[in-house]
Simulated scan of single mutants.
Amino acid sequence: MPLIETGSIRLRQFAPKDSPLVASVSDDPLIPLITTVPSNPEPAELEAYLARQHGRFSQGWGYSFAIADRDTDDAVGQLSLALRNLSFGRASVGYWIVPAQRRQGRARAALAAITDWALRFDQVHRLELYVEPWNEGSWRTAEACGYEREGLLRSWEWVGDQRRDMYLYSRIAG
């Protein structure tokens, strides 16, 4: 698992000490719906979440990083780089930040770091991310990192018990 450091953030493997972070977002209205964060923050569920993050690369899914403060190493969120479509030259990015740490540039720093890192690989020609239209903070983060909105994907995926629209953003190598 690579360690990526830049500016004020560190992208690193999840550790047992990150369980409180995961537990803190288990009651978030969105994060457990679009990720594998458990809505039941019991110790066994938190341990299973951390184990899933460790297994992402070995299972061929991609990478799951804890976004951590570079000075304290305290985790503030999660960032994934999914490689399911790598044979087509595409990878996708997703991220979340704990509410108390939002609007401090941490998502932008993490997205910029993973974008620069991923686009160095010959196999990655295109990075994609999907953002619900109402999530202005997330799409502004994408735009600040050079991602371009390509369009609205209507009824793109299930979030909870309903189909949701998503903006498609991309960043192209070169």
Rank of each mutant, 00 (worst) to 15 (best):
Y49C: 06
S138E: 08
I67D: 07
E45S: 15
F121M: 09
W117A: 08
N135L: 00
V131A: 03
Y63K: 12
Y167Q: 00
L50E: 10
D116N: 12
A118R: 01
R126P: 00
F121I: 02
W117M: 01
N135S: 01
S58R: 15
L30T: 11
T141A: 08
L168K: 11
A142Y: 01
A48R: 15
S138G: 00
D161V: 11
L83Q: 14
S92C: 10
W156L: 03
P32K: 13
G60L: 05
E150L: 04
G77R: 07
V159S: 00
P99Y: 10
S64Q: 12
I9S: 05
W61A: 13
C145N: 06
V124Q: 03
R120C: 13
S170M: 04
G89M: 08
F65V: 07
A23Y: 08
L50F: 01
R108E: 10
A118H: 04
I67M: 03
A109P: 01
F57V: 12
R52L: 10
E143Y: 08
S64H: 07
Q101A: 14
P16A: 12
G151Q: 04
R126I: 02
R52N: 09
L46V: 07
L33R: 08
Y147M: 03
T72K: 09
A112D: 14
V25N: 10
D27Y: 09
P99F: 11
A82Y: 11
Q59K: 13
S39E: 10
E5I: 11
L86M: 14
W134T: 08
R149P: 00
S8A: 14
G55H: 12
I97G: 01
Q13R: 14
Q13Y: 04
M1Q: 06
A82G: 06
D116R: 14
G60H: 12
Q13F: 00
G7V: 05
W158Y: 06
E128T: 00
L81E: 11
W139H: 13
V93P: 04
A51E: 12
G89K: 12
S19R: 14
D28T: 06
C145W: 01
L33W: 03
A113H: 08
R154A: 09
F65S: 03
R70S: 11
I9G: 06
R149C: 07
Q162F: 06
G7N: 13
E47V: 08
E150C: 07
Q162N: 07
I34T: 15
Q78R: 15
T115Q: 05
P43S: 08
E136Y: 10
Q123C: 10
L168I: 07
Q104V: 00
Y169C: 02
T115H: 01
I114H: 08
Q13W: 02
R52P: 04
R164D: 02
Q123V: 13
K17I: 10
R10N: 07
A110W: 02
D122N: 15
N85I: 06
Q162D: 14
A44L: 11
V98M: 11
F88R: 15
V98C: 14
I4P: 05
A15L: 12
Q53M: 15
A112E: 03
S8V: 06
S80F: 01
H125D: 05
R10F: 03
V93W: 02
P20M: 05
L46N: 04
A113V: 08
Y147L: 02
L83V: 13
A110L: 03
Y49A: 03
L50T: 09
A110D: 06
T141Q: 01
S8C: 06
F65E: 03
L152W: 00
S138P: 04
D116K: 05
R52W: 11
A107N: 05
L86E: 10
A48F: 02
G55W: 06
